[in-house]
Amino acid sequence: MRTVDLSTTELRNLNQALHELSEGTNETEWQITNPRGSHAVAVGVNAPIDVTIRGSVGYYCGGMNRLAKITVNGSAGPGVAENMMSGEIIVKGDASQYAGATGKGGLLVIEGNASSRCGISMKGIDIVVRGNIGHMSAFMAQAGNLVVCGDAGDALGDSIYEAKLFVRGSVKSLGADCIEKEMRPEHTEVLGNLLHRAGITNLTPKDFKRYGSARKLYNFSIDHADAYG
């Protein structure tokens, strides 16, 4: 295992070293210590490696990740796993705003709570949150799945496209064009699979409700002019 201490190593050197790895590398186990809320930790990685971060990180940890499995043993600041393409990012603590923003693939697991705008503009990523999520989550969410084991805040799924939202607890309010939808067998399967991958064994898909787009704002119509603002 290679250990990088961010109290003595520059962020630049860490990310450069990670970028120099490629598929087939032997250096597959990385540990990052003393992140102390640093921004842009382990961003742009493109290798099937295992990165464990011991402590809390700042903005955009694991941004644009490909292939890597990144575990944050602490909390994550805004935009964790933003635009992730593949791989897996696990946050043991809480995540701040914009978790998984615009993500295209891979799995983001937040074991604590996620703040506002979780999954904003998500484009195919899967996000599983064990706790609650804040307001404006899944705003303009285009594709992928957002699973929330706790409660959702205000305006869930505002202006949502084709992403699927699964919430176990309460939803404070739904955003424009977001409605509760029927849980069909294919949804149960997707959800069951995500719970399994996130290591959640005490819940089953039947505990959840599904939300998604009413598709009424997909085309401009005089009858929905109020929603365009």
């Binding site: 102390r36 809320g37 640093s38 909390s75 701040s96």
Partner: peptide
């Protein structure tokens, strides 16, 4: 969060937004 990491017993504090 960076601003708080040096505070005593921050690991056991209730932290929220």
């Amino acid at each position: 969060y960076r601003a708080l990491v040096g505070l005593p017993d921050i690991e056991s504090a209730r932290v929220w937004e």
